[in-house]
Nucleic acid binder design. Sequence first.
DNA 1: GTCTATATCAAGATAGAC
DNA 2: GTCTATCTTGATATAGAC
Lengths: 186, 186
Amino acid sequence: MLNRTQKRPRGRPSSKTVILDAAAAVVSEVGANHLTLDAVAERAGVSKGGLLYNYPTKEALLHAMVERFIQECVERRETLAEELGGDARGNLKALLLSRGESTETERKTAHGMLAAVAENPRMLDPAREAQGEVMNILRNAKDPLAATVAWLAVEGLAFLDLIDLCPFSEEERKQILARALELAEL
Amino acid sequence: MLNRTQKRPRGRPSSKTVILDAAAAVVSEVGANHLTLDAVAERAGVSKGGLLYNYPTKEALLHAMVERFIQECVERRETLAEELGGDARGNLKALLLSRGESTETERKTAHGMLAAVAENPRMLDPAREAQGEVMNILRNAKDPLAATVAWLAVEGLAFLDLIDLCPFSEEERKQILARALELAEL
DNA sequence: GTCTATATCAAGATAGAC
DNA sequence: GTCTATCTTGATATAGAC
């Protein structure tokens, strides 16, 4: 619903896209509270006026960042789920893997979530909606409770990453993820 | 180290304590970005000058909030660990329980962590240090990998709580926590 | 140790030209 | 659709009285 993004199949990226990329880069570098419109405009190569033409307020910008992040997460999960068969088992595996092995860009854009929640906790409402599908996947698992624990573990890992407090090596992460999959009987 | 708090056994609480309580209350109500010195001063019943006498900068205030939060977590865990026998098994159980069943005040003060990390990610350095002991507990478990997954799950739960995105009922939480303990062979 | 008053500044937002 | 220039506000921090 409300999906006005994802147009413009070729040609140069839209200003909106350039701005969102710039905002993600800035927030991952300077921290959530120092995500200023000036910094985003400079990084995006537009003036503050140009920025505010595309996103009339800072809240609008943050909202767009949240929506894009969620969209990326959902798409990644759904693509992977299809590759894995599209059944309940594949959906669960896709959920765990897509959260457990996040890409570099995803980690960057994730910082925008921190900025959003710091500015206004209610700005995560879109994430709350998207969580409904996650709950469905967990409920349809063979052992829903085990699946939930496994999912929470990968979420915990992703969160520790986000605040740069993850004490595990790449090797340990792999073991952890493997153990979580095992727990969920995958 | 560096433990200058925790004096004043009786009598009215120190200004510092009153201020930290006020800051925790404010941040949990208005969100991390709107934690202003004015609001904290008003809530604490002191003037802004009085506040800045105790904490010369906002960073100093946030730093104190972080330290207190970590101290509370560690104390809670250690007290519980002692009650549970003080061995490796008791330590692990205390770790999981202390994070899984957080108190109301703990949840409030936790919001200060969000404010701190939003302001300056490096302000979580004290938490990074405290994590060393957690890693020790996990390493000493009978099945370290399972214990790690269980710990990450309760961390994930605590984080979802923090951003008000936890989709589980109180009953479901209990089941989840029980399952995590089972996974860790407790 | 706490107060009032004020300086300073950063940042969000507006107006209007091009 | 993008720019420059400007307005306005809100928040940190300082200075000095009590």
